[in-house]
Design a protein around this nucleic acid. Structure first.
Lengths: 198, 198
DNA sequence: CGCGACGTTGATTTGCCTCAACGATTGTGG
DNA sequence: CCACAATCGTTGAGGCAAATCAACGTCGCG
Protein backbone atom coordinates (compact mmCIF):
# COMPACT_ATOMS: atom_id res chain seq x y z
CA UNK A 1 0.00 0.00 0.00
CA UNK A 2 1.45 3.27 -1.07
CA UNK A 3 0.01 5.12 1.95
CA UNK A 4 2.43 3.24 4.18
CA UNK A 5 5.41 4.59 2.26
CA UNK A 6 5.02 8.00 3.84
CA UNK A 7 5.13 6.71 7.40
CA UNK A 8 8.02 4.35 6.62
CA UNK A 9 9.96 7.30 5.33
CA UNK A 10 8.97 9.36 8.34
CA UNK A 11 10.09 6.70 10.83
CA UNK A 12 13.35 6.12 9.00
CA UNK A 13 14.35 9.70 9.75
CA UNK A 14 14.76 8.69 13.39
CA UNK A 15 15.47 4.95 13.57
CA UNK A 16 16.42 2.23 11.08
CA UNK A 17 14.55 -1.04 11.13
CA UNK A 18 15.43 -4.54 10.06
CA UNK A 19 13.08 -6.22 7.62
CA UNK A 20 11.36 -8.18 10.37
CA UNK A 21 10.96 -5.14 12.55
CA UNK A 22 9.48 -3.17 9.71
CA UNK A 23 7.13 -5.97 8.87
CA UNK A 24 5.91 -6.12 12.43
CA UNK A 25 5.56 -2.35 12.59
CA UNK A 26 3.47 -2.23 9.43
CA UNK A 27 1.28 -5.03 10.75
CA UNK A 28 0.03 -2.89 13.64
CA UNK A 29 -0.98 0.02 11.41
CA UNK A 30 -4.40 0.69 9.95
CA UNK A 31 -5.02 2.99 7.01
CA UNK A 32 -8.30 4.87 7.15
CA UNK A 33 -10.14 7.42 5.08
CA UNK A 34 -11.86 10.15 7.06
CA UNK A 35 -14.41 12.29 5.29
CA UNK A 36 -14.64 16.02 5.89
CA UNK A 37 -16.44 16.88 9.15
CA UNK A 38 -16.16 13.33 10.43
CA UNK A 39 -14.73 12.85 13.95
CA UNK A 40 -12.15 10.26 14.92
CA UNK A 41 -12.35 11.24 18.59
CA UNK A 42 -15.27 12.54 20.66
CA UNK A 43 -15.65 13.61 24.28
CA UNK A 44 -16.41 10.82 26.78
CA UNK A 45 -15.05 8.08 24.52
CA UNK A 46 -11.49 7.01 25.23
CA UNK A 47 -9.13 7.89 22.41
CA UNK A 48 -7.82 4.57 21.14
CA UNK A 49 -5.38 5.72 18.48
CA UNK A 50 -2.58 7.97 17.48
CA UNK A 51 -3.35 9.32 14.01
CA UNK A 52 -0.64 10.04 11.46
CA UNK A 53 -1.94 12.14 8.60
CA UNK A 54 -0.84 10.85 5.21
CA UNK A 55 -2.79 13.48 3.33
CA UNK A 56 -5.40 15.93 4.48
CA UNK A 57 -6.07 18.31 7.35
CA UNK A 58 -7.56 17.81 10.80
CA UNK A 59 -8.02 19.66 14.04
CA UNK A 60 -8.51 18.83 17.71
CA UNK A 61 -10.76 21.20 19.61
CA UNK A 62 -12.43 21.67 22.95
CA UNK A 63 -16.07 22.72 23.12
CA UNK A 64 -16.64 24.79 26.23
CA UNK A 65 -19.77 25.46 28.29
CA UNK A 66 -20.68 28.43 26.08
CA UNK A 67 -20.34 26.19 23.01
CA UNK A 68 -17.23 28.03 21.98
CA UNK A 69 -14.65 25.99 20.12
CA UNK A 70 -10.98 26.15 21.11
CA UNK A 71 -8.59 24.48 18.71
CA UNK A 72 -5.67 22.79 20.45
CA UNK A 73 -4.06 21.19 17.43
CA UNK A 74 -4.05 21.77 13.70
CA UNK A 75 -2.42 19.09 11.59
CA UNK A 76 -1.78 18.45 7.93
CA UNK A 77 0.30 15.92 5.95
CA UNK A 78 3.00 14.21 8.02
CA UNK A 79 1.76 15.47 11.39
CA UNK A 80 0.24 13.49 14.25
CA UNK A 81 -3.05 14.26 15.91
CA UNK A 82 -5.24 12.86 18.66
CA UNK A 83 -6.56 13.75 22.09
CA UNK A 84 -3.17 13.12 23.58
CA UNK A 85 -4.29 13.37 27.20
CA UNK A 86 -6.94 10.79 26.57
CA UNK A 87 -4.57 8.57 24.61
CA UNK A 88 -1.65 8.33 27.00
CA UNK A 89 -3.74 8.05 30.16
CA UNK A 90 -6.40 5.95 28.39
CA UNK A 91 -9.14 8.04 29.93
CA UNK A 92 -12.27 9.55 28.36
CA UNK A 93 -11.53 12.27 25.84
CA UNK A 94 -12.47 15.90 26.28
CA UNK A 95 -11.74 16.92 22.71
CA UNK A 96 -13.17 16.41 19.28
CA UNK A 97 -10.74 15.39 16.57
CA UNK A 98 -12.29 16.25 13.25
CA UNK A 99 -11.33 16.18 9.58
CA UNK A 100 -11.27 19.63 7.96
CA UNK A 101 -11.17 18.00 4.53
CA UNK A 102 -11.22 14.41 3.24
CA UNK A 103 -8.19 12.91 4.91
CA UNK A 104 -6.17 9.70 4.90
CA UNK A 105 -4.72 8.72 8.26
CA UNK A 106 -2.63 5.86 9.57
CA UNK A 107 -3.71 4.71 13.01
CA UNK A 108 -1.80 2.96 15.78
CA UNK A 109 -3.91 1.53 18.53
CA UNK A 110 -2.81 2.00 22.12
CA UNK A 111 -2.46 -1.69 22.96
CA UNK A 112 -0.61 -2.30 19.72
CA UNK A 113 1.75 0.53 20.52
CA UNK A 114 2.56 -1.10 23.84
CA UNK A 115 3.27 -4.39 22.07
CA UNK A 116 5.37 -2.64 19.49
CA UNK A 117 7.45 -0.97 22.21
CA UNK A 118 8.01 -4.36 23.80
CA UNK A 119 8.93 -6.23 20.66
CA UNK A 120 10.87 -3.46 18.96
CA UNK A 121 12.38 -1.26 21.69
CA UNK A 122 13.81 1.05 19.04
CA UNK A 123 10.38 2.61 19.01
CA UNK A 124 10.98 3.88 22.53
CA UNK A 125 13.58 6.06 20.91
CA UNK A 126 11.32 7.01 18.02
CA UNK A 127 8.49 8.15 20.25
CA UNK A 128 10.88 9.86 22.64
CA UNK A 129 12.28 11.96 19.85
CA UNK A 130 9.03 12.95 18.21
CA UNK A 131 7.45 13.69 21.58
CA UNK A 132 10.39 15.93 22.46
CA UNK A 133 9.89 17.87 19.27
CA UNK A 134 6.22 18.12 20.06
CA UNK A 135 6.99 19.34 23.55
CA UNK A 136 9.36 22.00 22.29
CA UNK A 137 6.80 23.08 19.70
CA UNK A 138 4.07 23.42 22.33
CA UNK A 139 6.36 25.45 24.52
CA UNK A 140 6.99 27.93 21.74
CA UNK A 141 3.29 28.13 21.07
CA UNK A 142 2.49 28.68 24.72
CA UNK A 143 5.01 31.50 24.88
CA UNK A 144 3.37 33.04 21.86
CA UNK A 145 -0.03 32.71 23.47
CA UNK A 146 1.05 34.26 26.77
CA UNK A 147 3.23 37.04 25.48
CA UNK A 148 2.01 38.20 22.09
CA UNK A 149 -0.92 40.23 20.80
CA UNK A 150 -3.47 38.69 18.48
CA UNK A 151 -1.91 40.48 15.54
CA UNK A 152 1.59 39.22 16.35
CA UNK A 153 0.35 35.66 16.78
CA UNK A 154 -1.28 35.81 13.38
CA UNK A 155 1.80 37.21 11.70
CA UNK A 156 4.00 34.61 13.37
CA UNK A 157 2.02 31.68 12.08
CA UNK A 158 1.99 33.14 8.60
CA UNK A 159 5.77 33.18 8.64
CA UNK A 160 6.48 29.95 10.50
CA UNK A 161 3.69 27.66 9.32
CA UNK A 162 2.34 29.16 6.10
CA UNK A 163 1.20 25.78 4.79
CA UNK A 164 -1.09 25.32 7.77
CA UNK A 165 -2.31 28.90 7.84
CA UNK A 166 -3.24 28.74 4.17
CA UNK A 167 -4.83 25.34 4.19
CA UNK A 168 -7.30 25.39 7.05
CA UNK A 169 -10.53 27.42 7.12
CA UNK A 170 -10.32 30.76 8.82
CA UNK A 171 -12.57 29.94 11.74
CA UNK A 172 -10.28 27.04 12.66
CA UNK A 173 -7.20 29.21 12.41
CA UNK A 174 -8.83 31.89 14.56
CA UNK A 175 -9.70 29.48 17.32
CA UNK A 176 -6.21 27.95 17.13
CA UNK A 177 -4.73 31.39 17.60
CA UNK A 178 -7.10 32.13 20.45
CA UNK A 179 -9.11 34.95 18.90
CA UNK A 180 -12.58 35.42 17.47
CA UNK A 181 -13.24 34.82 13.77
CA UNK A 182 -14.38 38.41 13.43
CA UNK A 183 -11.16 39.76 14.81
CA UNK A 184 -9.00 37.57 12.58
CA UNK A 185 -11.02 38.76 9.62
CA UNK A 186 -10.35 42.35 10.56
CA UNK A 187 -6.65 41.68 10.97
CA UNK A 188 -6.48 40.10 7.53
CA UNK A 189 -8.20 43.07 5.96
CA UNK A 190 -6.29 45.72 7.84
CA UNK A 191 -9.35 47.04 9.59
CA UNK A 192 -7.52 47.11 12.89
CA UNK A 193 -3.80 47.60 12.55
CA UNK A 194 -4.24 50.63 10.33
CA UNK A 195 -4.53 52.50 13.59
CA UNK A 196 -0.84 52.01 14.12
CA UNK A 197 -0.01 53.89 10.92
CA UNK A 198 -1.56 57.16 11.93
CA UNK B 1 25.05 11.52 48.58
CA UNK B 2 21.54 11.81 49.88
CA UNK B 3 20.49 14.23 47.08
CA UNK B 4 20.80 11.39 44.60
CA UNK B 5 18.25 9.32 46.49
CA UNK B 6 15.41 11.48 45.25
CA UNK B 7 16.26 11.07 41.57
CA UNK B 8 16.91 7.34 42.00
CA UNK B 9 13.46 6.99 43.46
CA UNK B 10 12.00 9.15 40.70
CA UNK B 11 13.60 7.09 37.92
CA UNK B 12 12.54 3.83 39.53
CA UNK B 13 8.92 4.79 39.07
CA UNK B 14 9.38 4.27 35.33
CA UNK B 15 12.24 1.82 34.78
CA UNK B 16 14.23 -0.57 36.95
CA UNK B 17 17.99 -0.56 36.68
CA UNK B 18 20.65 -3.16 37.39
CA UNK B 19 23.42 -2.19 39.79
CA UNK B 20 25.80 -1.41 36.95
CA UNK B 21 23.27 0.62 35.07
CA UNK B 22 22.46 2.63 38.17
CA UNK B 23 26.12 3.19 38.86
CA UNK B 24 26.67 4.51 35.36
CA UNK B 25 23.58 6.67 35.58
CA UNK B 26 24.70 8.26 38.82
CA UNK B 27 28.13 8.88 37.37
CA UNK B 28 26.76 11.27 34.74
CA UNK B 29 24.89 13.40 37.27
CA UNK B 30 26.09 16.56 38.95
CA UNK B 31 24.59 17.97 42.12
CA UNK B 32 24.60 21.74 42.28
CA UNK B 33 23.43 24.42 44.69
CA UNK B 34 21.84 27.44 43.06
CA UNK B 35 21.36 30.54 45.15
CA UNK B 36 18.23 32.64 44.91
CA UNK B 37 18.19 34.90 41.80
CA UNK B 38 21.05 33.02 40.20
CA UNK B 39 20.58 31.87 36.60
CA UNK B 40 21.46 28.45 35.25
CA UNK B 41 20.51 29.43 31.71
CA UNK B 42 20.72 32.77 29.92
CA UNK B 43 19.77 33.95 26.43
CA UNK B 44 22.43 33.44 23.74
CA UNK B 45 24.25 30.71 25.65
CA UNK B 46 23.35 27.17 24.67
CA UNK B 47 21.56 25.32 27.44
CA UNK B 48 23.84 22.43 28.35
CA UNK B 49 21.77 20.66 30.99
CA UNK B 50 18.49 19.25 32.04
CA UNK B 51 17.89 20.28 35.66
CA UNK B 52 16.06 18.08 38.12
CA UNK B 53 15.06 19.99 41.24
CA UNK B 54 15.81 18.11 44.43
CA UNK B 55 14.64 20.92 46.64
CA UNK B 56 13.75 24.51 45.87
CA UNK B 57 11.89 26.51 43.25
CA UNK B 58 12.85 27.85 39.84
CA UNK B 59 11.30 29.45 36.81
CA UNK B 60 12.07 29.80 33.10
CA UNK B 61 11.04 33.09 31.56
CA UNK B 62 11.27 35.07 28.36
CA UNK B 63 12.20 38.73 28.47
CA UNK B 64 10.50 40.55 25.60
CA UNK B 65 11.38 43.77 23.78
CA UNK B 66 9.40 45.83 26.28
CA UNK B 67 11.34 44.14 29.12
CA UNK B 68 8.25 42.28 30.17
CA UNK B 69 8.83 38.86 31.69
CA UNK B 70 6.79 35.87 30.54
CA UNK B 71 7.16 32.75 32.65
CA UNK B 72 7.07 29.54 30.62
CA UNK B 73 7.81 27.09 33.40
CA UNK B 74 7.51 27.04 37.17
CA UNK B 75 9.14 24.12 38.93
CA UNK B 76 9.58 22.91 42.48
CA UNK B 77 10.82 19.68 44.12
CA UNK B 78 10.84 16.69 41.75
CA UNK B 79 10.16 18.69 38.59
CA UNK B 80 12.47 19.27 35.62
CA UNK B 81 13.37 22.65 34.21
CA UNK B 82 15.54 24.09 31.44
CA UNK B 83 15.23 25.98 28.19
CA UNK B 84 14.00 22.87 26.49
CA UNK B 85 14.13 24.27 22.96
CA UNK B 86 17.74 25.23 23.48
CA UNK B 87 18.58 21.90 25.11
CA UNK B 88 17.19 19.49 22.56
CA UNK B 89 18.29 21.43 19.50
CA UNK B 90 21.54 22.54 21.19
CA UNK B 91 21.01 26.06 19.99
CA UNK B 92 21.35 29.39 21.82
CA UNK B 93 18.79 29.86 24.56
CA UNK B 94 16.10 32.53 24.51
CA UNK B 95 15.06 32.08 28.13
CA UNK B 96 16.42 32.76 31.56
CA UNK B 97 16.22 29.90 34.03
CA UNK B 98 16.45 31.38 37.50
CA UNK B 99 16.22 30.19 41.09
CA UNK B 100 13.32 31.71 43.01
CA UNK B 101 14.87 30.51 46.27
CA UNK B 102 18.05 28.66 47.23
CA UNK B 103 17.74 25.44 45.28
CA UNK B 104 19.50 22.10 44.90
CA UNK B 105 19.42 20.67 41.38
CA UNK B 106 20.77 17.55 39.72
CA UNK B 107 22.09 18.21 36.24
CA UNK B 108 22.50 15.95 33.24
CA UNK B 109 24.64 17.29 30.46
CA UNK B 110 23.50 16.91 26.88
CA UNK B 111 26.45 14.86 25.70
CA UNK B 112 26.24 12.65 28.77
CA UNK B 113 22.58 12.11 28.13
CA UNK B 114 23.38 10.89 24.64
CA UNK B 115 25.96 8.48 26.06
CA UNK B 116 23.54 7.30 28.69
CA UNK B 117 20.91 6.58 26.04
CA UNK B 118 23.45 4.57 24.11
CA UNK B 119 24.79 2.56 27.01
CA UNK B 120 21.52 2.11 28.88
CA UNK B 121 18.71 2.14 26.29
CA UNK B 122 16.15 1.81 29.06
CA UNK B 123 16.52 5.53 29.41
CA UNK B 124 14.95 5.96 26.00
CA UNK B 125 11.84 4.66 27.67
CA UNK B 126 12.31 6.81 30.74
CA UNK B 127 12.63 10.03 28.77
CA UNK B 128 9.83 9.01 26.42
CA UNK B 129 7.45 8.61 29.32
CA UNK B 130 8.31 11.76 31.21
CA UNK B 131 8.28 13.78 28.01
CA UNK B 132 4.84 12.43 27.17
CA UNK B 133 3.57 13.54 30.55
CA UNK B 134 5.16 16.91 29.99
CA UNK B 135 3.54 17.18 26.59
CA UNK B 136 0.11 16.32 27.96
CA UNK B 137 0.61 18.83 30.76
CA UNK B 138 1.55 21.59 28.32
CA UNK B 139 -1.47 20.82 26.20
CA UNK B 140 -3.79 21.26 29.17
CA UNK B 141 -2.07 24.49 30.04
CA UNK B 142 -2.34 25.79 26.52
CA UNK B 143 -6.05 25.02 26.47
CA UNK B 144 -6.41 26.91 29.72
CA UNK B 145 -4.49 29.84 28.28
CA UNK B 146 -6.56 29.97 25.10
CA UNK B 147 -9.99 29.37 26.52
CA UNK B 148 -10.21 30.67 30.07
CA UNK B 149 -10.44 34.09 31.70
CA UNK B 150 -7.69 35.33 33.99
CA UNK B 151 -9.83 34.59 37.01
CA UNK B 152 -10.55 31.04 35.91
CA UNK B 153 -6.89 30.39 35.20
CA UNK B 154 -5.97 31.56 38.68
CA UNK B 155 -8.63 29.44 40.34
CA UNK B 156 -7.60 26.42 38.32
CA UNK B 157 -3.98 26.57 39.41
CA UNK B 158 -5.03 27.01 43.04
CA UNK B 159 -6.95 23.76 42.81
CA UNK B 160 -4.63 21.72 40.62
CA UNK B 161 -1.20 22.90 41.71
CA UNK B 162 -1.63 24.52 45.12
CA UNK B 163 1.94 23.71 46.14
CA UNK B 164 3.32 25.72 43.25
CA UNK B 165 0.83 28.56 43.58
CA UNK B 166 1.65 28.97 47.26
CA UNK B 167 5.38 28.66 46.99
CA UNK B 168 6.41 31.07 44.27
CA UNK B 169 6.29 34.88 44.54
CA UNK B 170 3.21 36.51 43.16
CA UNK B 171 4.87 38.30 40.26
CA UNK B 172 6.16 34.96 38.99
CA UNK B 173 2.76 33.35 39.28
CA UNK B 174 1.11 36.26 37.49
CA UNK B 175 3.49 36.07 34.54
CA UNK B 176 3.08 32.27 34.45
CA UNK B 177 -0.68 32.73 34.23
CA UNK B 178 -0.30 35.39 31.56
CA UNK B 179 -1.65 38.39 33.44
CA UNK B 180 -0.23 41.52 35.07
CA UNK B 181 0.85 41.47 38.71
CA UNK B 182 -1.67 44.21 39.45
CA UNK B 183 -4.53 42.18 38.07
CA UNK B 184 -3.56 39.06 39.99
CA UNK B 185 -3.40 41.13 43.14
CA UNK B 186 -6.91 42.42 42.52
CA UNK B 187 -8.20 38.93 41.89
CA UNK B 188 -6.71 37.69 45.14
CA UNK B 189 -8.28 40.51 47.08
CA UNK B 190 -11.67 40.37 45.37
CA UNK B 191 -11.37 43.84 43.91
CA UNK B 192 -12.56 42.56 40.57
CA UNK B 193 -14.83 39.58 40.76
CA UNK B 194 -17.08 41.25 43.35
CA UNK B 195 -18.75 42.81 40.37
CA UNK B 196 -20.23 39.45 39.54
CA UNK B 197 -22.04 39.28 42.88
CA UNK B 198 -24.17 42.33 42.39
C1' DC C 1 18.66 52.50 58.88
C1' DG C 2 17.65 53.19 54.14
C1' DC C 3 17.09 51.32 49.76
C1' DG C 4 15.20 48.18 46.54
C1' DA C 5 12.02 44.51 45.64
C1' DC C 6 7.40 43.16 46.13
C1' DG C 7 2.57 43.75 46.58
C1' DT C 8 -1.72 46.85 46.69
C1' DT C 9 -5.13 50.11 45.13
C1' DG C 10 -7.53 53.36 42.13
C1' DA C 11 -8.09 55.89 37.64
C1' DT C 12 -7.77 55.55 32.93
C1' DT C 13 -7.11 53.29 28.53
C1' DT C 14 -7.31 49.72 25.08
C1' DG C 15 -7.29 45.26 22.69
C1' DC C 16 -10.33 42.22 21.66
C1' DC C 17 -15.04 40.28 22.19
C1' DT C 18 -19.96 40.26 21.41
C1' DC C 19 -23.78 41.16 18.84
C1' DA C 20 -26.07 42.01 14.68
C1' DA C 21 -26.60 42.37 9.91
C1' DC C 22 -25.12 41.33 5.57
C1' DG C 23 -22.43 39.09 1.12
C1' DA C 24 -20.41 35.13 -0.91
C1' DT C 25 -19.85 30.45 -1.59
C1' DT C 26 -21.01 25.67 -1.20
C1' DG C 27 -23.76 21.86 -1.32
C1' DT C 28 -28.14 19.57 -1.43
C1' DG C 29 -32.77 18.04 -2.32
C1' DG C 30 -36.64 18.68 -5.35
C1' DC D 1 -30.22 22.45 -12.94
C1' DC D 2 -32.09 25.68 -10.16
C1' DA D 3 -33.68 27.23 -5.45
C1' DC D 4 -32.81 27.49 -0.99
C1' DA D 5 -30.41 26.67 3.17
C1' DA D 6 -26.42 26.28 5.56
C1' DT D 7 -21.80 27.54 6.24
C1' DC D 8 -18.21 30.79 6.11
C1' DG D 9 -16.24 35.24 6.00
C1' DT D 10 -16.85 40.51 6.43
C1' DT D 11 -17.98 44.88 8.52
C1' DG D 12 -19.46 48.17 12.04
C1' DA D 13 -21.11 49.64 16.72
C1' DG D 14 -20.80 49.11 21.40
C1' DG D 15 -19.04 46.94 25.67
C1' DC D 16 -16.00 44.68 28.85
C1' DA D 17 -11.86 42.26 30.73
C1' DA D 18 -7.51 43.19 31.58
C1' DA D 19 -3.46 46.29 30.70
C1' DT D 20 -1.21 50.45 31.81
C1' DC D 21 0.03 54.17 34.66
C1' DA D 22 0.85 56.20 38.96
C1' DA D 23 1.21 56.43 43.81
C1' DC D 24 1.81 54.39 48.03
C1' DG D 25 2.63 50.71 51.95
C1' DT D 26 5.70 47.19 53.64
C1' DC D 27 8.92 44.04 54.31
C1' DG D 28 13.59 42.02 54.12
C1' DC D 29 18.29 42.63 53.46
C1' DG D 30 22.91 44.77 52.83
Amino acid sequence: MKELESIKKYVSKYISLTEDEEKYFLSVLTVKKIRKKQNVVQPDFTCKCRNYIVKGAMRAYYLDDNSQEHTITLAIDDWWISDFNSYIYQQPATLFVEALEDTIVIQIEYTNEQLLLEKVPKFERFFRIITQYGFAFLQRRLLSSISKSAEERYETILVEYPLIAQRVPQFALASYLGMSTEYLSKLRNNKVSLKKLK
